[in-house]
């Protein structure tokens, strides 16, 4: 319990979380505005009015807060690598020499923070979508679909934060960890999806889209996504595997 309180206090005594929350909200807003007012280049044969008639597309506008998941990944990475970068890990392990509970406390803390980020970003995308669509002719925002998105964003963002912590404890160099994670999210994952179709559903991004009901990207329905339940389980699987590897290496590591 003490370890958990300490982890929360760590987050609350720096400004990082607030900055990242602000960036994530701005990014979500941008996503909604683009989806409502513009049509992606790849889908120029249709116009935005037509896209807005498609129920799945409208629900994806609400779910577009999924794209803010990268900020949650970043907060997990910075939170963990920051301990090594500033050598506060020494104080952490002096206070709690049994390291496993520390890792659990960190995972729980960042999962909660991820979930909070998720809820706020969902509120922004739902609110902004409702406002901007008001004057237009559009398919309805279906409450039950939005509810699924809400559940998905809570689970998905919690998992992404844990993944960030795990990546950060495996790659302790902050810059390296951030670069590797961002290269994966923005370069490797899209490349794999583009060239090896079936990977889309099984990559973390595809699993997050599935659980969040984010079925439209670049103006086209994503093909072959898992069901929401399967996507959620897959995400949990990623977190468990990566988390266990990260914990085991951290338990043995010399802190010098």
């Amino acid at each position: 319990m003490n370890a958990l309180r300490a982890e929360f206090r760590k987050v609350l005594t720096t400004k990082l979380a607030l900055w990242l929350l602000a960036f994530s909200v701005a990014f979500t807003a941008l996503n909604v505005l683009l989806m409502v007012y513009l049509v992606p280049t790849s889908a120029r044969m249709v116009n935005s009015g037509q896209l807005l008639q498609i129920p799945a597309y409208v629900n994806s506008i609400v779910a577009s807060c999924a794209n803010a998941s990268v900020f949650v990944l970043i907060i997990g990475i910075i939170g963990m690598t920051g301990e090594y970068r500033h050598m506060t890990i020494t104080a952490t392990f002096l206070a709690s020499p049994r390291r496993a509970p520390v890792m659990v406390a960190k995972a729980v803390t960042y999962a909660v923070i991820g979930a909070i980020f998720g809820i706020i970003n969902f509120a922004v995308s739902l609110g902004l979508a409702t406002i901007t669509l008001a004057g237009k002719e559009h398919a309805a925002i279906v409450p039950s679909e939005s509810l699924q998105t809400l559940g998905g964003v809570i689970l998905g963002f919690a998992i992404y934060a844990i993944l960030g912590v795990a990546v950060g404890s495996l790659i302790r160099n902050q810059v390296a960890a951030l670069i590797i994670a961002l290269v994966f999210v923005f370069l490797i994952q899209p490349l794999l999806s583009a060239f090896v179709d079936w990977t889309t559903a099984w990559l973390p991004g595809g699993a997050l889209d599935a659980v969040m009901n984010m079925t439209y990207r670049q103006g086209e329905a994503t093909s072959g996504l898992l069901t929401a339940w399967a996507g959620g389980l897959l995400l949990i699987g990623y977190a468990v595997v990566l988390g266990v590897i990260a914990s085991i290496t951290t338990l043995k590591r010399d802190i010098t």
Partner: peptide, 28 residues
């Protein structure tokens, strides 16, 4: 045991009070 080790550090963005309150929380 209270220890002050070489190369144990502080987050530059935290105040001294903030740093101590984190450690205090970890030990109740």
């Amino acid at each position: 045991v209270g220890a002050a080790l070489e190369a144990s550090g502080f987050h530059p963005g935290r105040t001294a009070r903030g740093h101590l309150s984190v450690v205090a929380a970890s030990a109740g």
